[in-house]
């Protein structure tokens, strides 16, 4: 069982060593990675996903419970303690959603096939367009693919560490995803440009030029700010869903959203 991940420093894009001595993420902790595009956010979580041992572009090392993980843990998916949702919104495997999930469940050592239906059911909570068991994964829309992969990470990946790369960009129901994965006792890392997600996490890692610039612990004031922002965000989502379904903005909606 993973209780702790430790990230040891690597080098930034011009070869200068990162300033921190180590970053520790503990079970139950939520973390966001923020910074401009190209600052190294995705590279940071990819290092975690690969359990890097100085053999990635950044030269970082990642320890599990304070120890170097063995090769089997790094390379065998059914022992891998990490699930990652990348920014990919495309699948190349010529399989139906059901077959795709069934093979993945096998890869993760899950014997019970009911997980396949459960995953598709959960995915359909994240997206407005329904995914069917026999939908080919190659023709799913961007939002459907992301929803399916998020649901897959939660139920089939079912790992103590979940890494999410910009889930807000997927056109899926972010609030729903957040609700399900918060308070699970897992280590959850969000790469994000979304202020709501950034403020809902306890720790913020700021990236710059390929390196960690600083680590900020959320203040009490920021907790209040997060909940205020969440209210705004909900109103924005209502308007977004209206527009997406071809509805008009009404008087009441304008006064409510500006209130």
């Amino acid at each position: 069982m993973i209780t702790e991940l430790t990230i040891l420093p690597g080098f930034n894009k011009v070869g200068i060593r990162e300033g921190f001595s180590k970053i520790t993420l503990s079970a139950g902790e939520t973390v966001s990675i923020v910074g401009p595009t190209g600052s190294g956010k995705t590279a940071f979580i990819t290092d975690i996903e690969l359990l890097a041992q100085g053999d990635t572009a950044t030269k970082r090392k990642v320890l599990v419970n304070g120890l170097v993980p063995d090769d089997e843990v790094r390379c065998n998916p059914c022992r891998k303690p990490i699930a990652m949702i990348t920014q990919n919104t495309k699948c190349f495997a010529d399989l139906s959603s059901e077959e795709f999930l069934r093979i993945h469940a096998r890869a993760r050592g899950i014997k019970d096939n009911s997980v396949v239906d459960e995953t598709i059911e959960l995915a359909n909570k994240f997206t407005g367009e329904k995914i069917k068991n026999d939908s080919r994964v190659t023709v799913l829309s961007g939002g459907q693919t992301r929803s399916l992969l998020v649901a897959d990470a939660i139920l089939i990946g079912a790992s103590p560490v979940i890494l999410l790369d910009e889930i807000e960009n997927a056109g899926i129901f972010k609030q729903e995803v957040l609700r399900i994965i918060q308070n699970t006792g897992k280590i959850i890392v969000f790469v994000t440009h979304d202020p709501v997600i950034a403020l809902l996490t306890k720790k913020r890692i700021i990236m710059q030029n390929g390196a960690v610039k600083k680590v900020i612990i959320r203040s009490d004031l920021e907790v209040t700010a997060a909940y205020n922002l969440l209210e705004y965000d909900k109103r924005v989502s209502i308007i977004r869903e209206r527009l997406r379904t071809g509805k008009m903005i009404t008087e009441e909606l304008v006064s409510a959203s500006l209130a």
């Binding site: 699930a83 190349f92 495997a93 093979i103």
Partner: peptide
């Protein structure tokens, strides 16, 4: 880097 983790694992499972 071009595919999702789930898809990588599905391919790896097929190879295995």
């Amino acid at each position: 880097d071009l595919v999702s983790q789930a898809e990588r694992e599905v391919l790896v499972q097929k190879i295995k």
